[in-house]
Design a protein around this nucleic acid. Structure first.
Length: 307
DNA sequence: AAGTACTTCAACCGCGCGAGC
DNA sequence: GGCTCGCGCGGTTGAAGTACT
């Protein structure tokens, strides 16, 4: 049995609504209520499909619709609700007064989705991605950086290799960030093993974990993550903002294996004043400084990283 | 200034579900 | 239980706007 079409497509108008049509629909619904959407267009004098009228009303004309930019609170709420409900946009919309499911869905797809991908967060599980198999993830990561200005790179292979290196670098930083935060909450967890594996050393033996769990550090939750480029190797330093406001180096490690540094010519330029890192005389000046809290709270763009 | 590429979001489409007969 | 109908949902499309070259 074939479902009867909701309307005769040859008879109905499609595409953008005119102000006149909006006026007719609004006036009719305010006077009579929506009633049966199938018969509403005829009664209201509209050459539109009932479905189209319902959509126009619920997504645009309804008087309680809040338009304009989503606030930070709304964005956080959407992310939280999505982690619980998944793509149940209508359910999510019921928790955001004045926002429609369509609007939230669009906002997710155009803004939040990209932001989470850039942060290395899985869109389904909302967990940090722990896989560093960059080549297998390249398609989604390429989507995430779609439109990114990579400068005057004329060689496509060079461009792809740089992008791959940048992605690998960022993925590693995000992973370490999450592990550091998890270990500060639970120093006995298996996250220490995971960190050892990512850093290629024993963080426990190196004193990192005991440093991290000192009371005046562990309560701040603010970590800076610095990388240093020396020849072809990258060194890492993890600092913590202590309760007295000082920036303390908790841990640093050189000879981190395997991954290629991003954009070598840019890495050569120090991003911050070298004075701040005077306690690291054995290392080159930091080539890149990221406040991990900023990454989480304010989002970041690939341009921030690459520039 | 013009052409092109990219982004945004309103609108559409097809499907599934539940109510009523 | 099976069928029809209306509604609502999630995915997709494409026009319009904006940014870039």
């Amino acid at each position: 049995m074939v479902r009867a079409p909701c309307c005769d497509k040859a008879e109905v108008k499609r595409g953008p609504w005119t102000a006149e049509e909006d006026g007719k629909l609004k006036e009719f619904i305010e006077k009579h209520g929506p009633g049966n959407w199938r018969y509403l267009p005829k009664k209201a004098g509209l050459k539109r499909c009932g479905k189209s009228c319902r959509l126009r009303w619920t997504n645009y004309l309804r008087p309680d619709i809040k338009r304009g930019k989503f606030s930070d609170d709304e964005e956080r709420l959407i992310i939280h609700l999505h982690s619980v409900l998944g793509n149940k946009w209508s359910m999510i919309a019921t928790n955001l007064p004045g926002r429609t499911d369509n609007e939230i869905k669009n906002y997710w797809n155009t803004h939040i989705r990209k932001k989470l991908l850039m942060m290395g967060i899985d869109l389904v599980t909302h967990q940090q991605r722990t896989d560093l198999d960059i080549l297998s993830n390249l398609p989604s990561l390429l989507t995430a950086v779609n439109g990114l200005n990579l400068g005057n790179i004329t060689n496509p292979l060079e461009s792809a290799l740089r992008l791959q290196a940048d992605v690998a670098h960022l993925a590693r930083m995000n992973l370490i960030k999450n592990l550091v935060q998890a270990i500060s909450l639970d120093p006995l967890s298996t996250n220490v093993d995971a960190l050892n594996s990512v850093l290629g050393c024993n963080a426990l033996q190196a004193g990192f974990v005991s440093n991290l769990c000192q009371p005046n550090f562990s309560n701040s939750g603010i970590y800076n993550f610095n990388t240093f480029n020396q020849e072809s190797d990258i060194s890492y330093e993890i600092c913590c903002l202590a309760s007295d406001g000082t920036d303390n180096s908790l841990f640093n490690i050189s000879q981190v294996p395997s991954l290629v540094a991003a954009s070598p010519e840019e890495m050569a330029q120090p991003a911050v004043s070298p004075n701040k890192y005077s306690n690291l005389s054995s290392l080159s000046e930091p080539s890149e400084t990221l406040n991990l809290t900023d990454l989480v709270d304010e989002g970041f763009s690939w341009k921030d990283i690459l520039e």
